[in-house]
């Protein structure tokens, strides 16, 4: 079943049709979401009532567009802040982990490596509740001991950041490790021979080499945080990030407003992806 092996024409055609059908299946839900963002009706469903931009720019009831819908805009802002914090934290720790596992051979390394991978095989909701349980144990302990109310350990954005960070760090570590493994260590030794100290060598030689992976990990971490639902749902307080806010709306019934938000999300994440690809091409 490779091009150099002749196959009956019917088989080839059927195979091609299957692959084509697969891509239609992949695209269909997204296309539908995008198209109904422009439907001039209260519901994102047929019949088609005509084209409108109101779900983006409308400013009077019943059609308030995304850009005039305060709660949604605030939720987007919350998600962006959470995503940035998670991305920076997880890439910082991920880079440190990558150096640790690549450069040092120590006792317990294998065990730590497996532990590092564990967050990938723990269901997100379990990660969420375990952090919720532990943080409230600590907060209650603090209250009983010194009568200090640790507000940040109660459900809220700090816990959401910590919860997402707990598994996104694994992914950042893997992305950065993969590139660090390909690094030619003699380059660093050359810098040391030329009189640089260790830190200067790493800063001027290794980190620039790692940059594409670091940028890639930042983008991936940001997007994963932006999209995360399970862990966030368990830790969220009064400020809901976008996915949770949209989920609450969706439970009450959907309007094309949600389609418009979704379309903006699609455009946003495709742009980010393109930036990342362009950046990696260049270097």
């Amino acid at each position: 079943m490779i091009p150099s092996i002749p196959q009956p024409r019917a088989f080839r055609a059927a195979y091609m049709a299957y692959v084509l059908l697969f891509f239609v299946y992949l695209a269909l839900p997204l296309v539908v979401v995008a198209v109904f963002a422009f439907n001039d009706s209260q519901f994102p469903s047929l019949p088609w009532e005509g084209f409108t931009w109101n779900w983006f720019f409308g400013d009077e009831r019943p059609m308030i567009g995304v850009f005039h819908e305060r709660p949604i805009l605030r939720a987007i802002g919350t998600s962006a802040i959470v995503g940035s914090c998670v991305a920076l934290l997880s890439v910082a720790v991920g880079t440190s982990n990558a150096f640790l596992f690549n450069r040092y051979r120590f006792r317990g390394r294998g065990l730590l490596y497996v532990l590092m991978l564990l967050p990938l095989v723990i269901p997100g909701i379990v990660l969420g509740i375990s952090i919720l349980v532990f943080s409230s144990t600590v907060a209650n302990g603090l209250w009983d001991a010194v009568k200090y109310d640790a507000e940040m350990l109660r459900p809220g954005l700090v816990l959401v950041v910590l919860g997402q960070f707990s598994f996104i760090t694994t992914i950042a570590t893997l992305v950065i490790s993969a590139r660090l493994q390909k690094f030619d260590q003699t380059l660093e030794e050359a810098a040391l021979n030329l009189g640089a100290d260790r830190l200067t060598a790493v800063r001027t030689i290794t980190i620039p080499y790692l940059m594409p992976a670091i940028i890639g990990a930042l983008v991936v971490a940001f997007l994963m945080s932006f999209e995360n639902f399970n862990t966030t749902l368990m830790l969220v307080g009064s400020d809901a990030p976008l996915t949770v806010a949209m989920f609450d709306r969706l439970k009450e019934g959907s309007t094309p407003l949600l389609n418009a938000v979704s379309l903006l999300l699609m455009i946003g994440s495709s742009l980010l992806a393109l930036v990342m690809i362009a950046f990696q091409r260049r270097s």
Binding site: L26, A27, L28, P29, L30, V32, V33, F36, P44, S45, L223, F226, E227, F229, L242, T243, M246, F247, L250, S254, L258, N259, S262, L265, M266, S269, S270, L272, A273
Partner: peptide, 18 residues
Amino acid sequence: LVPFWVSELVRTFGWMIL
């Protein structure tokens, strides 16, 4: 890869509409 740059919520919403 494209569909997975979009939130799971949006994908599920798409299936609801369908």
